[in-house]
Design a protein around this nucleic acid. Structure first.
Lengths: 261, 261
DNA sequence: CAATAAACGATCATATATAATCATTATTAG
DNA sequence: CTAATAATGATTATATATGATCGTTTATTG
């Protein structure tokens, strides 16, 4: 005879393992009435361990790939950004210490960082931090700072001071505007100050920017082209732009989307 | 014949080893009445050595994987903690700048902070930050630091430095151990360092601790009783404890759970 | 879209576990 | 040694988990 707690835990395991289970099946399996199974399922659903359906239950969806957040849904160029993130991933080595800027493209990279055995990640993005919080093999540091609700980025003196106190192998940087004349720009002054600080704390600066950023000029300037060692963009960038960027001494990586458009 | 403490330890071991035990089984095994077994189990549960179920007890699960454990989700003292949080809430004024420690009790308070029109909150708890991220009327600052996966608390030099650079009206502090001799203690050294810093940055220190913390001594000491201006606890605290704490010059608030047990 | 069968939630009865209480026994302090 | 205190066991009232029943809701299928 099982205790209630034991049974609930086993039911949760059972469903996670098999992918699904009917109420009847569970009642038979654990030798209790269907009433009891339903009560258990209700409790487990409340604790988010599974989702009930008519007739049974299914595992709760891992937030790995499904259920993109609101920001993600509204995001344009997702395919391109994922491709850029994959290209960025190949630049990271075991044991690296990296600085991860906030932004939707760098967020895609954060999701890919799982699986590293030894990695130190410093970020001002709460969204990125959430993705990596449970990875035991990744040392995760948050810069701290005032939280901007729109982007869940931490900015301001707290962030700047902490970034100033470290040195990293690689910075993965995002931007709103990238222009050969105006340099690197973003709409928000305090975010610009943080990015500027990040650049100064990195041995190698890698810019992750899809083609739509090229030629854009925003309000606050945080760096110039010569700060950038490498730029990763998508294949929709114009050949003319590529030539112009390369002639500024920046290595280019054109990310392949693997056949898909 | 065993001493009480010996028996309790053996019961805890027994359950950890076998994975479960019924009250009957334990009464037989240790040659005591079921009443005594239940009392032992109650004590052991309060100390988090095991979890009671109807009919017996099971071990506390180690949360080795990334999923939130049962323990976290169904916190047995939730009612008390909520009551404590409500009492803490009444101490906060519009326009205050408060420092919020990480922990389950302070997390309850974070959830109640919505609705303030003007409030500055500094916290090292990512969980608390998530609750408040979308409140436009709350200025939210994160301390930054290394993220501890178990508690989602930010600790270490980043956090300490930023905390040291501010001064707040009120600190809402959590603790694992509260003892008139040993003072305030917690299992983790780096968390202790952060808490210690917090105390130094606050004009008024308010301790939020349910009755189970009283008399507990953990590994790392981060403060003494004289640091505390006020303690908020639940009504299950013993009158003797209240008197002892008050004679140490600490104002006491016994949170009412509003009729519910 | 309606008919039908299955699944569901609500409610109740019951068996059992538990908390509260009190008497008794062990332990400690003076 | 005696008084006070704490732990234990027995007893009783309360609380809880469970299974059965039944009216309602939901999915399916012709």
């Amino acid at each position: 005879m099982l205790f209630e707690e034991e049974r609930k835990r086993l039911i949760a395991d059972y469903i996670r393992q098999r992918g699904r289970a009917s109420v009847q099946e569970l009642a038979l399996q654990f030798q209790v009435s269907e009433s009891t199974v339903r009560r258990d399922l209700r409790d487990l659903e409340e604790l988010q361990f599974l989702r009930r359906t008519h007739g049974g239950a299914v595992p709760v969806l891992e937030n790995d790939n499904n259920e993109p957040s609101f920001i993600e849904k509204e995001d344009r160029f997702q395919q391109q950004k994922l491709a850029i993130a994959r290209a960025a991933l190949s630049l990271i080595r075991e044991g690296d210490t990296i600085l991860l800027d906030s932004g939707t493209t760098t967020y895609q990279l954060a999701k890919l960082l799982r699986g590293f055995q030894r990695l130190t990640v410093i970020t001002n993005s709460v969204m990125a931090a959430q993705e990596l919080a449970n990875e035991k093999t990744i040392e995760l540091l948050l810069t701290g700072g005032t939280l901007r609700p729109e982007t869940l980025a931490m900015v301001g003196p707290f962030a700047e001071r902490n970034i100033a106190s470290v040195h990293v192998d690689k910075l993965f940087l995002a931007t709103n505007g990238f222009d050969t004349e105006a340099g690197l720009t973003t709409p928000n002054m305090v975010e610009a100050a943080v990015k500027s600080r990040m650049i100064r704390s990195a041995r190698q600066v890698i810019l992750m920017a899809d083609h739509s950023k090229y030629g854009q000029v925003s309000f606050a300037r945080f760096g110039e082209l010569s700060d950038i060692a490498r730029m990763i963009t998508d294949r929709d960038i114009s050949p003319a732009a590529v030539q112009e960027i390369e002639s500024a001494g920046i290595d280019m990586t054109i990310a392949d989307q693997g056949g898909a458009a």
